[in-house]
Nucleic acid binder design. Structure first.
Length: 193
DNA sequence: CGACGGATCCTCT
DNA sequence: GAGGATCCGTCGT
């Protein structure tokens, strides 16, 4: 399947997750091309929004095209793009980037020289881009964020989501076909395009 | 009020 | 492949 060069923040999470593959994500000019995402919906036992709004997940129920940032395992920050409409509790987790802008700074923040591992995983993405709870709820179309759709259609592959224990069968992980910057390989690199 | 467990990452084997 | 680090929202008693 090919995703078209447009970002529909009012779409449901799986569609936006697909559209975000190949998009450019920057924070203060640092970042890269999105190569891996996951979709989370309200009627989705694996989603933080499952069960309705709470203080912790309030950004997930806020306006679309804004950030939902949460702390993972008490250590890492992870960035989501809120979608649909306010109240739906749908979002797309940014799982991996192909580093393109500010690589030296990302290396410094991450403490590694391995470019393949700079942004390969949601915690690594946040660390490389300097994302913290301070970014929770901020609009992604304004500084310090910059989010631009892909320049051209890209080939997207899918798989089940990673690290969850509920709704494990949903094929809601999306990746850029053939990318070496994903957090984990996709089982099949062929799609119908 | 105590316990649990997670949309993870790193190190060591 | 396994286990530890380390925070805090959520839930059970």
């Amino acid at each position: 399947m090919s995703s078209r060069p447009a970002l529909h923040f009012d779409a449901d999470a799986p569609q936006l997750a697909r559209e975000l593959i190949g998009a450019l994500l920057l924070v203060d000019g640092v970042g890269g091309l999105i190569v891996e995402t996951e979709a989370y919906a309200m009627d989705d036992p694996a989603s933080h929004s499952h069960g309705g709004p709470r203080p912790r997940n309030r950004s997930m129920f806020g306006p679309p095209a804004h950030a939902y940032v949460y702390r993972s395992y008490g250590i890492h920050w992870c960035l989501n793009v809120v979608c649909r409409e306010a109240g739906h509790g749908a979002a797309v987790l940014i799982r991996a980037l192909q580093p393109t802008h500010g690589v030296a700074l990302m290396r410094q923040r991450r403490g590694t020289e391995n470019e393949r591992l700079l942004c390969a995983g949601p915690g690594r993405v946040a660390q490389a881009l300097g994302i913290t709870q301070a970014h929770d709820g901020l609009p992604l179309d304004q500084p310090p964020f910059e989010l631009r759709p892909p320049d051209h259609p890209v080939e997207v592959v899918t798989d089940v989501r990673i690290g969850i224990s509920k709704a494990v069968e949903l094929p809601w992980r999306f990746g850029l076909a053939g990318s070496r910057f994903v957090s984990r390989p996709f089982p099949r690199e062929t799609t119908g395009a």
